[in-house]
Amino acid sequence: MSSATVRSRRPAVPGRYEVVEADLTSDAGWAEAMKGVRYVLHVASPMSGSADLVGPAREGTLRVLRFAVEAGVERVVMTSSCAAATPPEGSTGSFDETVWTDPSGVGIDEYRRSKLLAEQAAWEFMRHKDTSLVTVLPGAVFGPIQTRANMGSVRVIERILGGMPGVPRIGLNIVDVRDAADLHVRAMTAPDAAGERFIAVSEFMWMADVARSLDAPSRELPNFVVRAASLVAKDMRPLVPMLGRGYSYTHAKASSMLGWAPRPARDTVVECAASLRQRAS
């Protein structure tokens, strides 16, 4: 989420769930919200629009865990990110959950650092607690959208559909939002998942391949063009450290332990684009 405040809309199906409001930067409301709760899925973390991403991500996570433990919650599933499992600069090949991002590494931006430090703090806090912890590490989350607000990764698809003159040579480790949700539920209920990290990625695709899947212009921009453009276009600066990154992730652990079977990345991309077009009308 782009805000430290967790908000939900009125239930679409009356009586199915209760809606409360809480803030990752305040203790108010959390004790009441945790009463009678068996499982907690902690999915909210700031992505942009804040000068400080690390503080709300780390302290907010610790706040959720503290109140969950005090309430006797059985398990917390925390949404981390592949940003917390970034291999060293220049790496190629496929990586798994044993990788941890080096916070001092080249090109490690504030978002990656916030996800890393929040997850590390979570594991440290939950040592020797009765409540179990599981973390799920999604890649670039695409798929059908419910709203055009706070779209996160989906802005990549939106920009491609908008007619970019060319696409940067950036690789994406893609997961469908529906598959990410499914993995969270599996991690929540499977006894053997306690104390584990799970990569949530289907497949790797270059942005040019994503564009071709959408019948959009797919000419790759030379890296030096993107670097030059980033000097004047602030929104392109986060792309520079990602240029040429060709590593992927394996979801073998989630598949073998939890029976997780994500859909092909191309299907996710195409359905995401269809959803964006529908929401634009």
Rank of each mutant, 00 (worst) to 15 (best):
T189D: 00
P191T: 00
P191M: 03
P191D: 01
D192W: 05
D192L: 09
A193P: 00
A193R: 01
A194V: 01
A194I: 00
G195V: 09
G195H: 13
E196M: 13
E196C: 09
F198Q: 07
I199V: 15
I199G: 05
A200Y: 08
V201C: 04
V201N: 02
S202D: 09
E203Y: 10
E203T: 05
E203Q: 15
F204K: 02
W206F: 12
W206D: 08
M207P: 00
M207G: 02
M207S: 07
A208D: 15
A208H: 14
A208L: 07
D209N: 09
V210M: 11
V210A: 07
V210P: 01
A211G: 10
R212W: 11
S213E: 14
S213W: 08
D215V: 12
A216V: 00
A216H: 09
P217S: 11
R219W: 02
R219V: 12
E220M: 12
E220T: 15
E220L: 07
F224V: 11
F224W: 14
F224D: 11
V226W: 08
A228H: 06
A228C: 08
A228I: 01
A228G: 13
A228M: 13
A229G: 14
L231I: 04
V232S: 13
V232H: 05
V232D: 06
V232N: 04
A233Y: 03
K234G: 09
K234C: 01
D235W: 12
D235N: 13
M236P: 11
P238N: 06
P238F: 00
P238E: 00
